[in-house]
Every structure is written in structure tokens, then in C-alpha cells.
Design a protein around this nucleic acid. Structure first.
Length: 850
DNA sequence: AAAAAACGAGTTTTT
DNA sequence: CTCGTTTTTT
């Protein structure tokens, strides 16, 4: 601490003696006002009051903020105020005049994180900073670098950015051009391979021989090369190139690199545990400047601050290297490491459970979160059992309804504060179905994103082809959308003509319609298209871009296509197109819009509605909720079998981190669920509870039978949190392989039932649903293994075979969806075409005949 | 060229 | 089972 203070003091002295202290604003150094100087001084002087932005930070957070010099790793556990530290740190650097906004490079992974950081820095600094030009995602900063130096990697600065869809189509063409069978060698798979190589920063000549041979009869390398060449001619980049090109460019041009070394005084990286090798190399290049005599910059090392949490690294499967964060102090010798372990989010039980679970991982830097919010009133983490996923969904739905009811104090739980976090997206379906029948508002986070929808991509392809006549991929996408009678044959012809002359396809089309080579019908259609593009391109400069966009969609017949489409989705698609054009308003030009959309592939959700969120565990990272439901804690699903098969031990550890992430999203309540039977690929499979449940500490967990409407459970098992005394420490690694040890960690009905299922019926399939109308399940009065007996089928379940009172075509009314016609009936489940809400499946009890 | 039928695959996702 | 894709049919 002393050394630290001494260093700071020198620094302050240095700053104070300087005449042109950088302050807010980018170009003109401004003399720092004395009031601020005092504040800055105060930040470092313990006797004086701290500047207001430091108030409320705990000592570790504060240290992370003010340790501006030298490499710093902030290990920020879940809910420990990571973003606050990052933003305050930036504010601090700015406020104390250590750097201009333009001299700080701050990278995040998602646009959302970048946006949030910008906003929060703005708030802290009082909006005096005109944005930070170098705060953004790795990719957006990569683009920025590339636009400036495109020619150094053989591109023009107006290059286009291709998304996955374009890439796959392009690769498919290449595979076909090579004369390979595109079914045996799927383009999508090769696209992933390329992505994998680029994540590692590997150029075609650098990829491992084995990889190169693995695809297309050993033509992998060739294809990769061909792909890169094709990109170059298209003047395009894929996402991987946005990382790889800058690396190559900076390596090959030391003068350019030196320029950025001079420029960036401070580097900040968010979510460091998620960086892949390419991002790491990129960062190293910028961070490791040569020995420097400039004051404030110590030779060789740099003021790089990485923030992350090794326990939350859940993206290994897409190239993230946890090792980057584990290795930090070796990469940056003399690095300061600060741990943020004081958690402000969750109760002691949630932290206790999560902490105990994650402690089963090896290869971690080790943190233990603690909280001061301890209260006997706090609910323990609850583990619930259900027969199958339908029951699981129903029980969760009921719990949600209960929580939503006003409590004794008249307070009610907002739906917005609840989330269901699933391992795999197919699990969502069941919850959606259930919530629809219940009339419970929900929102699905993460599904297909706005800009990935077909209609949006089509529209964008039109815009791209207008702005970038060389964008063959865009042109090809829409040349026959709407259908214009330009089929494969015509396209092939266009292709060949264009390739032979090395001109874009639009130009080829323009030429071809003047010849006799095309069939008259195709020729006329193509001429119309070409004329359209000529017109629109001409209008590009002198027409407001939103107006032009509308015109393009109108004149091309695209809007009309959807207007004539009678399917249920058509109106929604038209609405999306309107939304697209509306959103263009925020941009200066169509080009500006396209540039932005290529990188910012998200659209904000409707936040006004009070609704339960349903999302995958992966998309939940960084979020928090009062109450979190975690269904599907079963072996094979969570941990997922595939992770185990492909990732082995580290795969398991990543799954465990995922469980950790899930638990730590909860502030007050975490409800874990496992079911005994789950339908996988259409077959009913008997399942066993996740090993992660066994890894939870009994002190913070209670195994509860669900508060099901049919009641009658609590008479079993003598209390819901009884644990067997004999197995206090069941955490040896061997238990994973030894089924016996699974037998009874918890002495509760649900648990025992699960164990019974496991031993009785591990491989039994329930071929049909008729075998399990189980609403009421009893247990042989705690036999040694808790044998399951089915006492009866007392309560009618929603899936009975009782014929419905409705018939197809009946006019019905539903509380939530209004009027509609019955389209199909299965048992008492009705498929109804609602006049307003579209097609939904509901239970007959929820509708009345009109 | 468009509609119907057969086929096959099926964690997690950002840019 | 259920979705998306490819192949076959008209």
C-alpha cells in the first residue's frame, strides 16, 4: 500500500507540473480547472475527502479504480460490482486528466455491454465527454482499425462485412466449384472450421496439417485459401477477419503499430475470460509496446486492465480460452491482481450453494464470494423434483403465480424480476406452452434476432446491393425474391459471365440483358431488376435514405410479396419491415445504417410489459433476477452429454461454471428442478438427477417436493430438508463414476423417487404418454430405497384422452387471445386460429364457445 | 419453378 | 417429435 501511494504521489506531481494536461475533449488539450485538480488530488490523498465518484466503493473496488498504472487483473466475481469498477475507472482516468477519452481503448464482447459502459461513464463524468471513440466490441474496434488501414491488408476501406449466412452461401459455392459433393462436405461445417481457425488467428498456411486434411479429402487448406481470395475480390470480411486482419496489419506495419502504442495510454478489457486466441494476440500487440522513455509509461509493460471471472467462462466451445485469464500474471509480469469477492446481489444461501458447487472445479484462480446480507428469513436454495417436463413447467408456473400474489405486506413479485434459465432452448417450449394456457406473460430472450429474420435480411440485401454494387452475395440473395422466374439456370449464366470478365454480377446482368443469350422471359425480368437498381443507385445521393428504402421495397415488389402471402407470419413480417425502416431514421445515410447493422445485430426488446423471462443459461450471463428458476438439472441435459463426450473433464467444468452462472443470477430465490422423465428426440427417457445437485452444500439447500396443487407430500420423509448424516462429505471425484454413491444424499421423497427411477428404470423408455398419468405419487413408507409406487390417477391431467367438447371449425373465445376458430384437436388440447393473436395451442378449459 | 414429400439431425451464441 | 433442408413430383 505504501509503495502504491508513493507511486501515485509521483504521478500526481508529474501531472501537476505539466502545462498541457489532457482534459475532456479530444483535440485541444485544456488546462485542468483547479476544482478538478483538487478532486483528483483528493482521490489519492487519504486524508482529504475522496471525489464523489469514489464514494460508495469498497476498498478493493477503489483500489481497482485508482491503480491506473501497470498491468492489472480484476477478478470480479458475480455481482461484485464489476461494471461499476470499470466505468468508475474510466471516469477516474478522465477526471484526473491522465488521458483524453480518445486515448483509452476499452473493449467489450457485446454491443450491449459497450452501450451500457458508454452510458455509465457519461453519467459519471457528467456528459462532458463526447463519447469515447475507442470504446466498443473487439469487432467494432477491429472494423475501425481496418477502415483506416484497409489497403494494408488488400482491401478497400469501404469493404462489406458478411454475416454467417452470407459466409455459408459463399462457401457452398466454393465447394461446388471445387467439384466436391456439398452434402458430404457441408458448407456450414466448413464455415465453423474457418471460424475456429480465425479464432486462433490462423491464416490458411498456418493451420495444422490434420485440420487441413480433415475436410474435403484433404482440400481444407485449399478451400480456406480460395475462400480468403474470394473475400478479397468481393472486398469483404467475415467476422473472424475483423480480428485477424488487424493483427496481420499491425504485425506487418510496425510504424502503424507504434502509432497506436503512442495513442492508447490505457487499455481496458471486459469479460477477459471470454477472449479467444485471436483477441488475445490483438490485445497483446497493442498492450506490449517497446521500451519507452515517456513518463508515465513503464517500458515493456502497459496500463492494461483486464476484468473477468474465470468461474464464469462459459464460451470455451466457441473458442474462448480460459487460459488467457489464468495466465495473466505470466503474460504481464508484475501485474497487480485484485479480487472482488464482496457480493451485493445474492443471499448467503445462494452464494453458499454456488460457491460450494464451483469449488469442485480444478483449474481456477479461486475466489469465495461473501455477503453481508445474511438473514434467517432468507430462503434456502430449493431443489424440486417433478415427474416430467410438463409437470415441471406447471409447477414452476404455479410458483410464479403464488409469488405474484400480494404477500402479507401487500407486496407482489414483479414478473420482470423472475427468470427461467434453461440449459438448451428446446426446454423453453414446454414453459411457453404452459404460460400461454395460463395466460402468464412471458418473454423469450435470445431467440432469432431481429436482423436474422428472413424478411429483414432480404430487405438488407436490397439495400446492400444498392450501396455496394459489387456485393454479389446480396444481389444473388434477392435477384429472384420475390419470384421473378430467374431460376438456377439464369443465375448460373450470370455467374459465369461475371466470373469470366471479373465483374460484379449486377454489371454482368446489365450487359446480359442487352444480348440474346437469355430466354425472353428471364431477360425481361432481369432487365426490370437491373433497371430498378440503376434507378435506386442514382437516387442514393439525393433521396432521404428512409424514403429510398421504402421505395426499393415497394418498387421491387418485395412488400407486395408479403402482402399477398396469406400465411400467419406475413403481417408480422410486414410490421418488421416497417420497424426496419423506422430504425433507419437514426442513421445519417443508408451506408451508415448498413455499417452499423453488420455489427450491431441486436434489437431491443419490449421492456414495458411485466413478463417472466425465459432464456438459456448462456444468455443470462450478466443479468440478475429476484427469483430464478433452473429447470432440467438432469444428467445428460445438464451437464450436457455432448459437453462430457467432447470436452471431457474440462467440458464438465464448463458445465459446472454454467450452473454457477445460473445460480448466481438469483438475488433472493433460486429454485432448481429435475424431472424423472424427459422426452428426448421424441422418445421418453428416464433420467437421473444432475451430479451438480449432489455437489450443493446441504447447509444452504432444501430439497422440497413441489407445492403442487394436489398436495399431500409433506407427510413423507419427515421434513423437507433432511440429509443423511452418514454422507457428510460426498465430494470425492470418484462419486461421478460410482452409481452407488448417488443413492441417497438427500432423504426426501423427490430425491428418493429419482434414485429409485435411476436404479429401476435407467434405460426404460416410455414409448407413449399413456403410461404416466401421475398426479399423485406416494412412496412405500420409506422403504430402504424409497421405492416408488403409484397410488392413483385421481386428478385429470391436461393430457387425458377424454374427447374434447369442441369440434373443428367451432367458434370460440379465449380470455387472452380473443375470438378464433378451432383448427385441430388432440385430446383436450385445441389448436386455434385466433383472429388477432394468430395460431395458438390452448387447453379446452380456457376457451368458451361463442 | 413451385409445391409436396422424403430425409436427417437435434447444446450453448456473439460479432 | 419437430424443424429445416433437400429431393422428388407436378
Amino acid at each position: 500500500m505504501l509503495a502504491f501511494d508513493a507511486r501515485i504521489t509521483t504521478l500526481v506531481a508529474m501531472i501537476d507540473s505539466s502545462d498541457d494536461i489532457p482534459f475532456f475533449g479530444d483535440s485541444e488539450p485544456v488546462k485542468r480547472p483547479s476544482g478538478l485538480a483538487a478532486r483528483a488530488m483528493a482521490a489519492r490523498n487519504q486524508s482529504a475527502p475522496a471525489p464523489d465518484y469514489l464514494i460508495g466503493l469498497n476498498p478493493e473496488q477503489r483500489q481497482a479504480v485508482v491503480t491506473t498504472e501497470g498491468p492489472l487483473l480484476v477478478l470480479a466475481g458475480a455481482g461484485t460490482g464489476k461494471t461499476r469498477v470499470l466505468t468508475t475507472r474510466i471516469a477516474h482516468i478522465l477526471a484526473t486528466g491522465l488521458a483524453f477519452p480518445s486515448q483509452i481503448l476499452a473493449v467489450t464482447f457485446t454491443n450491449k455491454a459497450a452501450r451500457e459502459m458508454k452510458e455509465r461513464v457519461g453519467m459519471l463524468v457528467g456528459g462532458a465527454v463526447e463519447g469515447m471513440p475507442w470504446l466498443g466490441t473487439f469487432h467494432s474496434i477491429g472494423v475501425k482499425l481496418l477502415r483506416r488501414h484497409a489497403e494494408l491488408v488488400g482491401l478497400r476501406s469501404d469493404f462489406t462485412i458478411l454475416d454467417t449466412d452470407d459466409v455459408v452461401r459463399l462457401i457452398k459455392q466454393l465447394i461446388q466449384a471445387e467439384g466436391l459433393d456439398d452434402k458430404r462436405w457441408p458448407a456450414r461445417q466448413f464455415a465453423q472450421m474457418i471460424d475456429g481457425w480465425k479464432n486462433k488467428g490462423l491464416a490458411p498456411h498456418e493451420i495444422p496439417e490434420g485440420d487441413a486434411r480433415a475436410f474435403a479429402n484433404g482440400k481444407g487448406r485449399e478451400l480456406y485459401e480460395a475462400y480468403q481470395n474470394r473475400l478479397k475480390t468481393l472486398n469483404a470480411c467475415d467476422f473472424g477477419d475483423l480480428l485477424c486482419h488487424p493483427i496481420r496489419m499491425l504485425r506487418a506495419n510496425p510504424d502503424v503499430l507504434a502509432e497506436y502504442h503512442r495513442k492508447f495510454k490505457y487499455l481496458l478489457v471486459d469479460e477477459y475470460q471470454d477472449t479467444n486466441t485471436a483477441q488475445y494476440m490483438w490485445l497483446r500487440l497493442l498492450a506490449q509496446r517497446p521500451q519507452s522513455k515517456e513518463p508515465g509509461q513503464r517500458g515493456g509493460s502497459v496500463n492494461v486492465c483486464c476484468v473477468g471471472d474465470d468461474d464464469q467462462s462459459i464460451y470455451g466451445w466457441r473458442g474462448a480460452e480460459v487460459d488467457n485469464i489464468l495466465r495473466f500474471d505470466k503474460d504481464f509480469p508484475g501485474a497487480t491482481i485484485i479480487r472482488l469477492e464482496r457480493n451485493y446481489r445474492s443471499t448467503e444461501h445462494i452464494l453458499g450453494a454456488a460457491g460450494h458447487l464451483i469449488a469442485h472445479n480444478e483449474g481456477r484462480l479461486g475466489k469465495t464470494l461473501f455477503t453481508e446480507q445474511s438473514d434467517p428469513e432468507h430462503e434456502k436454495v430449493q431443489v424440486h423434483a417433478a415427474w416430467d417436463s410438463e409437470e415441471e413447467a406447471r409447477a414452476v408456473g404455479e410458483t410464479i403465480e403464488q409469488l405474484q400474489r400480494p404477500d402479507a405486506n401487500g407486496r407482489r413479485h414483479n414478473l420482470n424480476d423472475m427468470a427461467i434459465l434453461v440449459r438448451a432452448s428446446f426446454q423453453m417450449r414446454e414453459f411457453e406452452d404452459r404460460f400461454v394456457t395460463m395466460g402468464l406473460n412471458y418473454r423469450v430472450i435470445g431467440g432469432p434476432r431481429f436482423y436474422e429474420r428472413q424478411e429483414i435480411r432480404d430487405a438488407m440485401a436490397y439495400f446492400r446491393a444498392v450501396c455496394q454494387p459489387a456485393d454479389d452475395l446480396a444481389f444473388e440473395r434477392i435477384v429472384n425474391v420475390p419470384k421473378r422466374g430467374l431460376g438456377d439456370a439464369t443465375i448460373r449464366q450470370l455467374h459465369d459471365y461475371a466470373r469470366a470478365r471479373d465483374i460484379p454480377m449486377i454489371a454482368a446482368a446489365r450487359d446480359l440483358v442487352e444480348t440474346e443469350e437469355l430466354k425472353p422471359k428471364a431477360r425481361k425480368s432481369l432487365r426490370d431488376v437491373v433497371e430498378g437498381f440503376t434507378r435506386w443507385s442514382a437516387a442514393l445521393e439525393n433521396t432521404p435514405h428512409t424514403e429510398l428504402a421504402e421505395r426499393i421495397l415497394e418498387e421491387s415488389g418485395y412488400t407486395e410479396m408479403w402482402q399477398n402471402d396469406k400465411s400467419a407470419e406475413a403481417p408480422g413480417r410486414l410490421e418488421n419491415l416497417k420497424e426496419l425502416i423506422r430504425s433507419m431514421d437514426f442513421y445519417e445515410s443508408m451506408r451508415g445504417f448498413l455499417e452499423h447493422v453488420a455489427l450491431v445485430m441486436d434489437a431491443e426488446q419490449n421492456e414495458d410489459m411485466d413478463a417472466v423471462s425465459i432464456m438459456t443459461l448462456h444468455s443470462a450471463k450478466g443479468l440478475e433476477f429476484e427469483t430464478v428458476f433452473l429447470p432440467g438439472w438432469e444428467e445428460g441435459l445438464f451437464p450436457h452429454q455432448r459437453s462430457l463426450d467432447e470436452g471431457g473433464r474440462s467440458g464438465l467444468e464448463e458445465e459446472r461454471r454454467l450452473a454457477y452462472v445460473g445460480l448466481t443470477r438469483a438475488k433472493k430465490r433460486a429454485h432448481l428442478w429435475f424431472v424423472s422423465n424427459r422426452r428426448i428426440h421424441g422418445l421418453w427417457q428416464s433420467t437421473i438427477p444432475s451430479r451438480f445437485l449432489d455437489e450443493l452444500p446441504e447447509a444452504h439447500v432444501e430439497v422440497a417436493e413441489a407445492e403442487m396443487s394436489y398436495g399431500g407430500y409433506n407427510r413423507f420423509g419427515g421434513g423437507s430438508s433432511g440429509f443423511s448424516a452418514g454422507r457428510q462429505n460426498p465430494y470425492g471425484a470418484s462419486r461421478f463414476d460410482n452409481p452407488e454413491i448417488f443413492a441417497s444424499t438427500y432423504e426426501t421423497p423427490g430425491w428418493k423417487r429419482a434414485q429409485a427411477n435411476r436404479t429401476d428404470a435407467t434405460s426404460r423408455n416410455w414409448g407413449s404418454r399413456s403410461g404416466h398419468q401421475v398426479e399423485r405419487v406416494g412412496y412405500g413408507e420409506s422403504g430402504p430405497r424409497g421405492v416408488r409406487t403409484i397410488e392413483g390417477e385421481l386428478v385429470a391431467k391436461s393430457t387425458t384422452d377424454t374427447p374434447s367438447a369442441f369440434s373443428i371449425g367451432d367458434r370460440v373465445f379465449h380470455m387472452k387471445f380473443g375470438n378464433g376458430n378451432v383448427a385441430a384437436i388432440e385430446g383436450n388440447k385445441l389448436t386455434i386460429d385466433f383472429d388477432k393473436a394468430g395460431q395458438k395451442r390452448v387447453l379446452d378449459g380456457f376457451v368458451t364457445p361463442v
